[in-house]
Amino acid sequence: MDQNLSQYKIFYEVAKAGNISKAAKELYISQPAISKAISKLEDSLGLSLFTRSSRGVQLTAEGEVLFEHTKEAFDALERGELELKRIQEFDIGHLRIGVSNTLCKYILLPYLKTFIDQYPHMRITIESQSTAQTLSRLEQQKIDLGLVAEPSVRRDLSFIPVMDIQDIFVTTPSYLENLYLREGRDTDIFETGNIMLLDSSNMTRHHVDEYMAQNHILPRQILEVTTMDLLIEFAKIGLGVACVIKELIQKELDNHTLIEVPLDIPIHRRTIGFAYHPSNQTTALKTFLEFLY
């Protein structure tokens, strides 16, 4: 499009008014300036857009075609302006969040409840996915925010810590007692027990695998599970020894439904927080970050 947008605006207003003087009043510019802009537009297009008479102007067939397109364009711009005004008036925006099922259920939901109470008109999309996918989509700026364990490599992302978590191994008292009866109390639980872990694609699993490798722990029998909730439930029915997040099962530990398996060296703690791309300047993200602080 070689023409200045203002020329199309002038053409549009003249076509609507059917009169140059009326369009001049609408646009707050002189009639000669309007006539000049229309002539320039016609010259650049190589077409006559209006027929002139003492009663005003009338669109030519070609002018009618152009008017329909400019009407769609300016109507779309007007709708956009109204939408922005509505966003400002009602705190409406679109916040896209990436999070794993576990972190969504146990950590994100309480934050969202309070946030929605304060900003009830905010549109929120939750992408339930692995931490690796969330980090990738943050880098590509396809989502605004991710609730993740603090990555070892920041990848140019900003990170706001929320809480520390501790990975531990737990089981039921009865499972542990039966294991001792069968294998002896000096048994190595990791060699003789049924060790339940998240599947190998999970970032938590990578963290635990790294710990076990560093401490020369080699489980002989591993049951892989897709979600933390399933791990907890399998542990509670006495299916084996599960590696879970301590903060998620504090109730079970307190009432002795589950007991913690002692480790010579504890698994080092992780930090959970909100990650975002610092170049993201959307109103929705700014609003949520202000809410966090």
Rank of each mutant, 00 (worst) to 15 (best):
A213H: 11
Y111C: 07
Q281T: 11
I126R: 01
F67C: 15
T287L: 07
L198G: 01
H207G: 05
N194L: 10
G18F: 00
H268V: 00
R155A: 02
F169W: 05
E177P: 01
G273I: 05
K22N: 11
M228C: 03
Q129A: 01
D91A: 06
L157I: 07
G273F: 04
L147G: 09
K16T: 04
T271W: 15
A242S: 11
I10Y: 08
T257F: 04
S174C: 05
E177Q: 01
I107G: 03
F190K: 09
Y111H: 15
Q7R: 15
L258Y: 06
L263V: 10
M1F: 10
L231Q: 01
E177K: 03
S128M: 07
E26K: 13
I160T: 05
D229L: 01
I143H: 10
H256N: 13
I195W: 04
D254P: 05
A37M: 14
D186A: 08
D156P: 04
V65Q: 14
E183Q: 12
T51I: 13
D209A: 06
G146H: 02
H216K: 10
M122I: 11
R79A: 12
S39I: 01
C243S: 06
L145Y: 01
Q88G: 12
L77S: 04
R154N: 07
L103S: 00
T51Y: 09
Y180E: 13
E64L: 09
Q250E: 11
E247W: 13
T70V: 13
P120N: 08
G93Y: 02
I189C: 09
I232P: 02
S174N: 05
G184I: 13
L181V: 00
I259H: 10
C243H: 00
R154F: 00
P161A: 10
N194D: 06
Y180L: 13
R123I: 03
L157G: 05
L47Q: 14
H277N: 12
L230D: 03
K25Q: 08
S54N: 10
S200G: 06
R137F: 12
L292H: 15
S39P: 00
L145S: 07
S200H: 03
S200I: 00
M1R: 09
T171H: 08
M228K: 02
D164P: 14
E210K: 11
Q140Y: 13
D43Y: 10
K286D: 14
E62Y: 11
I34R: 08
M122A: 15
L27G: 00
L285P: 03
G240M: 03
T204A: 03
L285Q: 04
K113E: 07
L27W: 15
R137L: 12
G240S: 07
E62S: 02
I143D: 07
V99R: 00
S6R: 09
V65N: 14
S136R: 12
Y119F: 15
S152L: 02
R137S: 09
F291Y: 14
P262R: 11
P173G: 04
A235N: 02
